[in-house]
Simulated scan of single mutants.
Amino acid sequence: MKSTIRTMKITLDDLKGPEIAALLQEHLDDMRATSPPESVHALDLNGLRQPNIRFWTLWDDRNLAGCGALKWLDAEHAEIKSMRTAATYKQQGVASQILQHLINDAKAAGVQRLSLETGSMTFFQPARSLYAKFGFELCGPFADYVLDPNSVFMTKNI
């Protein structure tokens, strides 16, 4: 029996649990299998354990359903990082719930602009569609990113 999104809880995560380590490794493996090395911008556990990053997990009781992070670029601009839905929870609204939480958290913290980088390949089309549904629009590279045919940059004023 599949769980419903109503039973899930979002938690500020310390990135110490084995469940999140496994989900992030799956994320990195997919990114490396889909994109050339110079176009993989996903962060590993150590990369996510930075003072300018807040990392959130979505739990269905004791099962990890997904995750997402906010990386502050400055006081008014943050980047969405490490959005991932566990395979058994795809197409159940997990990514939408995480993304809405990240937008709300950023807005509450005074962020005025959210940006993200995702892949340009077909594999990333569901992610691009989700971001567009939430009002993100195409933009040029931001922060330390450069133009890359394997990357799509999106932003949203909040």
Rank of each mutant, 00 (worst) to 15 (best):
residue 21 A to N: 12
residue 23 L to I: 14
residue 23 L to V: 12
residue 24 L to C: 13
residue 24 L to K: 15
residue 24 L to N: 15
residue 24 L to P: 10
residue 24 L to F: 10
residue 24 L to G: 10
residue 24 L to Y: 05
residue 25 Q to C: 08
residue 25 Q to A: 13
residue 26 E to K: 14
residue 27 H to D: 11
residue 29 D to Q: 10
residue 31 M to K: 11
residue 31 M to V: 01
residue 32 R to L: 05
residue 36 P to H: 07
residue 37 P to M: 08
residue 37 P to F: 08
residue 41 H to V: 02
residue 41 H to T: 10
residue 42 A to E: 13
residue 42 A to T: 06
residue 44 D to M: 10
residue 45 L to M: 15
residue 45 L to C: 11
residue 45 L to H: 12
residue 47 G to C: 13
residue 47 G to D: 06
residue 47 G to N: 13
residue 47 G to K: 11
residue 49 R to Q: 15
residue 49 R to N: 14
residue 50 Q to S: 14
residue 50 Q to Y: 08
residue 51 P to V: 03
residue 51 P to E: 12
residue 52 N to V: 10
residue 52 N to L: 15
residue 53 I to D: 15
residue 53 I to H: 14
residue 53 I to R: 15
residue 53 I to G: 14
residue 54 R to Q: 14
residue 55 F to P: 01
residue 55 F to I: 02
residue 55 F to L: 04
residue 57 T to R: 13
residue 59 W to H: 15
residue 60 D to K: 04
residue 61 D to M: 14
residue 64 L to T: 03
residue 64 L to R: 09
residue 65 A to Y: 04
residue 66 G to S: 01
residue 68 G to P: 08
residue 68 G to C: 02
residue 69 A to C: 12
residue 69 A to Q: 13
residue 69 A to D: 13
residue 70 L to I: 03
residue 71 K to V: 00
residue 71 K to N: 09
residue 73 L to P: 09
residue 75 A to M: 07
residue 76 E to L: 13
residue 76 E to D: 11
residue 76 E to V: 11
residue 77 H to T: 15
residue 78 A to L: 03
residue 78 A to H: 03
residue 78 A to F: 09
residue 79 E to R: 06
residue 80 I to P: 04
residue 80 I to S: 09
residue 80 I to F: 08
residue 81 K to P: 05
residue 82 S to G: 11
residue 83 M to S: 08
residue 84 R to H: 06
residue 84 R to W: 02
residue 84 R to I: 09
residue 84 R to A: 14
residue 86 A to P: 01
residue 86 A to Y: 03
residue 86 A to K: 03
residue 86 A to W: 00
residue 88 T to S: 14
residue 90 K to G: 00
residue 90 K to L: 10
residue 90 K to N: 07
residue 91 Q to E: 00
residue 91 Q to L: 04
residue 92 Q to V: 01
residue 93 G to M: 01
residue 93 G to Q: 05
residue 95 A to F: 00
residue 95 A to D: 00
residue 95 A to C: 05
residue 96 S to N: 08
residue 96 S to K: 06
residue 96 S to W: 02
residue 98 I to K: 04
residue 99 L to P: 11
residue 100 Q to M: 11
residue 101 H to N: 13
residue 102 L to F: 07
residue 102 L to W: 01
residue 103 I to A: 10
residue 104 N to F: 09
residue 105 D to F: 07
residue 106 A to C: 06
residue 106 A to V: 06
residue 107 K to N: 11
residue 108 A to F: 12
residue 108 A to Q: 15
residue 108 A to G: 14
residue 111 V to C: 13
residue 111 V to P: 02
residue 111 V to S: 09
residue 111 V to Y: 04
residue 111 V to I: 15
residue 113 R to V: 14
residue 114 L to D: 08
residue 115 S to P: 06
residue 115 S to V: 04
residue 115 S to M: 07
residue 117 E to N: 12
residue 118 T to F: 01
residue 119 G to V: 09
residue 119 G to P: 04
residue 119 G to I: 07
residue 121 M to Q: 15
residue 122 T to L: 06
residue 122 T to G: 01
residue 122 T to F: 12
residue 123 F to A: 08
residue 125 Q to Y: 15
residue 125 Q to A: 04
residue 125 Q to D: 11
residue 128 R to M: 06
residue 129 S to G: 01
residue 129 S to W: 04
residue 129 S to M: 07
residue 129 S to K: 12
residue 129 S to H: 12
residue 130 L to V: 02
residue 130 L to R: 05
residue 131 Y to Q: 07
residue 131 Y to S: 07
residue 132 A to D: 05
residue 132 A to M: 02
residue 132 A to V: 03
residue 135 G to Q: 08
